[in-house]
Write a protein that binds this DNA or RNA. Structure first.
Length: 605
RNA sequence: GGGGGCGUGGUCUAAUGGUCAUGACAGCGGUCUGUCGAACCGCCAAUGGGAGUUCGAUUCUCCUCGUCCCCGCCA
């Protein structure tokens, strides 16, 4: 080994020992007759000192050392002079009186500062030089936490009898809806693999194969637009189990997260997690991933205003819409401009406007006051449980627009009013998710999650009824719209952390599902017939879940807005490029030819 | 595919239709015998790219590129 100790571990108990350390020079404080250098390795920092009076040779050898030179030094651990201790350093009671120094490598001046007074560099520059960014303590701490999260995931699942099994990255289309990355193949011109969106089918095949309990910390790929919480490639804790029902999967997942919170965050959490039905979550929060760290719940006003003279409301109701509101505390005095600002905000989500009712100390103010009697407005405040000083924000539209705009408005107001406690971890389950959702463009149903979910056994009759129903497919009362799936989402602080289901292992039910979503058997056979075939050989009942590793990391690390670039070692930009390598880059013409392909000429050519 | 924000030395940032484009840090040179956000003196170094308006553009307009956020997409 090139070293005997790590920089950050040196303490008074090491005094008198001669140690050899390797690391990088932090600040070099060069005085005329002494040089102090902060030597840093992964474990931390220790100060080394060279003195021209004691050893002119070593002192001279450090003359040219600059920031981020890579050094190997040997010296004696000594107690610092009285009064010269540095309480900011864990090793601050001691320093290394240097006896020999080897410059293992020099360093060019850095493109940005790693520490000190310097303001943080832009994310773009940090990503371009990610290998330097990693030398900063916060980034190093995140890498360490990420490793621990993976280690504890493996430790827990191992203790539960799970096997980690690898699945292919070169794969075939899976039934989920995301666009896939295509991998052309030289040996099969015109054909190609795709990178998996998830190991979904593989893990089900592992169940057919009798593995019984499988997990994998798996890379997944989706060729879709990035977001703060979405990257083209990301990591899932993929889990699948045989001979289980929904409660078994939820229970295992809860204990996994309790373990991770305890071992990685040092926090205890309460089990079991609260469960909300999909319907209740949509009703109270307008979202299937509600942030329950604060109130501001959505309140139904439809019945109160259906007889009002306000056409915007009554027309919306007549067209099958609804009227709902949230009550923002203490902002009754919002100016016209502030209200306009909120109106613009909800318009992004399809709302056509925002009605407001402000409950002042003695008066009521509303931008639609002329359409309402005072009694009607009092009734609204009462329904909203409004207190003097509160502002009621109302949206009337079709249910999906009301839900989305009030969901975003609710979270926006919570941010503005500082209502979100940062130290809370509100885990919850969303259950009883609809099996099918109506797609107006398609004019038929789609699988909410994927077509291999098992409908709730209690709703099997509805599956049948749907085939003979007189209702139109778009009718919210259609039996197929009522079918609940054994499908569950784990939500933490407004982020979908995990999603899973009990799978359909019976061929007859599977065929019904294909019929309902309008997927011809031949097409199903072509796309994933190999899996349907597998299910005909005694496939066991099974189900699973897939927590998003990156989102868990972002929330555990307390990254604002859940920006997962902060917790991915080498992330891509939101435009899907890698600033470090410059990928994706042009593919030379001969490579295309070899693959039997040719890029289309770009537009300007 | 759409909407919005940002783009000034290596980094972060200030300002302006007109004289030498501000400051800090980094870098380079020097001073300093206990520094640790070292200090002090000096030096070097910039308006993303293109077109337009103009006597003159870093500033105004348009396009483009990059980046960030959001809608769609991901479900």
């Amino acid at each position: 080994m090139q070293r005997t100790h790590h920089c950050g571990e040196l303490r008074p108990e090491h005094i008198g020992q001669t140690v050899t350390l390797c690391g990088w020079a932090g600040t070099v404080r060069d005085q005329s007759h002494q040089t102090f250098i902060d030597l840093r390795d992964r474990s931390g920092i220790v100060q080394i000192v060279a003195d021209s009076d004691l050893d002119a040779g070593v002192f001279e050898s450090l003359r040219g050392v600059k920031s981020e030179f890579c050094l190997q030094i040997t010296g004696e651990v000594v107690r610092r002079l009285p009064g010269k201790e540095n309480p900011k350093l864990a090793s601050g009671e001691v320093e290394i009186r240097i006896e020999n120094a080897i410059v293992l490598n020099t360093s060019k001046p850095l493109p940005f500062e790693l520490s000190g007074t310097g303001v943080a560099a832009s994310e773009e520059v940090r990503l371009q030089y990610r290998y330097l960014d990693m030398r900063r303590t916060p980034v190093r701490d995140i890498l360490e936490m990420r490793y621990k999260l993976a280690r504890e995931t493996r430790r827990f699942l191992d203790s539960e009898g799970f096997w980690e099994v690898e699945t292919p990255l070169l794969w075939k289309s899976t039934p989920e809806g995301a666009r896939e990355y295509v991998v052309p193949v030289r040996t099969h011109p015109g054909k190609g693999f795709v990178l998996p969106q998830s190991p979904q089918i593989c893990k089900q095949l592992l169940m057919v194969g009798g593995v019984e309990k499988y997990f994998q910390i798996a890379k997944c790929f989706r060729d879709e637009s990035s977001r703060a919480d979405r990257q083209p490639e990301f990591t899932q804790i993929d889990i699948e189990m045989s001979f289980v029902g929904q409660d078994d999967v939820l229970d295992l997942t809860e204990r996994l997260f309790a373990h991770l919170m305890r071992e990685v965050k040092g926090q205890e959490i309460e089990l079991p997690f609260p469960r909300l039905t999909y319907a209740e979550s949509m009703r109270r929060y307008g979202s299937d991933k509600p942030d329950t760290r604060f109130g501001l719940e959505l309140v139904e006003l439809t019945d109160l205003v259906v007889d009002s003279g306000f056409k915007v409301f009554t027309n919306a109701i007549a067209n099958g819409g609804e009227v709902k509101a949230i009550c923002a505390p203490g902002v009754a005095a919002y100016s016209r401009k502030e209200v306009d600002d909120l109106t613009e905000f909800v318009k992004r989500f399809g709302a056509r406007g925002l009605a407001t009712f402000a409950l002042g100390e003695s008066e009521i103010k509303s931008n639609v006051a002329k359409f309402f009697t005072e009694n009607q407005m009092r009734a609204i405040f009462e329904r909203m449980d409004a207190k003097p000083g509160d502002l009621v924000l109302v949206v009337a539209d079709k249910p999906s627009v009301v839900a989305q705009s009030l969901d975003f408005l609710r979270r926006e107001m919570a941010r503005r009013l500082n209502l979100i406690p940062q130290d809370k971890f509100n885990f919850l389950w969303i259950v009883d998710t609809p099996m099918f959702e109506y797609d107006a463009e398609k004019g038929g149903f789609d699988a909410t999650h994927h077509p291999f979910c098992l409908p709730n056994p209690e709703d099997m009759a509805l599956m049948q009824e749907g085939f003979s129903s007189n209702l139109s497919l778009g009718d919210v009362l259609h039996p197929w719209a009522q079918v609940r799936a054994w499908l569950y989402d784990l939500v933490l602080n407004g982020f979908e952390l995990a999603s899973g289901s009990i799978r359909c292992h019976r061929r007859d039910i599977q065929s019904q599902i294909f019929q309902i979503i309008g997927l011809p058997e031949e097409v199903a056979q072509e796309r994933f017939g190999f899996m349907l075939d597998a299910f005909e050989y005694g496939a066991p009942p099974h189900g699973g879940i897939a927590p998003g590793f990156d989102r868990v990391m972002a929330l555990f690390a307390g990254i604002p807005d859940g920006n997962i670039r902060e917790i991915i070692p080498f992330p891509k930009t939101s435009g899907g490029q890698d600033p470090l390598s410059g990928a994706p880059t042009a593919i030379p013409a001969d490579r295309w030819t070899e693959l039997g392909l040719a890029p289309l000429p770009s537009e300007e050519e």
